[in-house]
Amino acid sequence: MIKRKYLLIFPEETVEKPITYNLIHDYNLMINILKASVTPGKEGRLVIEVQGDKKALANAKLYLKEIGVNIKPVIEGIRWLKERCVHCTACVPGCPSQCFVVDRKTMVISFEKEKCIVCKHCLSACAYGAIKILENNAG
């Protein structure tokens, strides 16, 4: 069993195909949709977390490539610029996956990247320019 995060970019002609259904049904993968922007007639973007058998995942990726879906691993959608962070805590409440953890004794923040689902809330909450987004990977 492995768990991976991907950004799927699919051209407008594949938007109407039930890709997520096929991944679950044909490859027995557990799919968690983290973010989706799908409009008929336009390029679609989907950030998913996939969990399943290693071989099945490899086959699923082949299937996606065949139908023209561009797959990018989400390595770091959100970057926390430690040297620009002033440890104010403005990013903390709106984060749905609680990536920003405050040591309540020192009031110093740390960022737990693996929890991030690239919702971008922190981007609008941070006033100090300490959050950067890598658009390529984040969709």
């Binding site: 002033v86 440890h87 104010c88 805590t89 403005a90 990013c91 903390v92 409440p93 405050v102 309540r104 020192t106 009031m107 110093v108 909450a125 006033a127």
Partner: peptide
């Protein structure tokens, strides 16, 4: 407020600030 949560009007909510206590220190 600094504990991270307060309760007002019967509702608990997370707290945050744009001031930095760490940098103030």
């Amino acid at each position: 407020l600094q504990s991270g949560h307060i309760k007002i009007l019967g509702k608990a909510m997370p707290t945050c600030t744009l001031s930095s206590y760490a940098r103030a220190k």
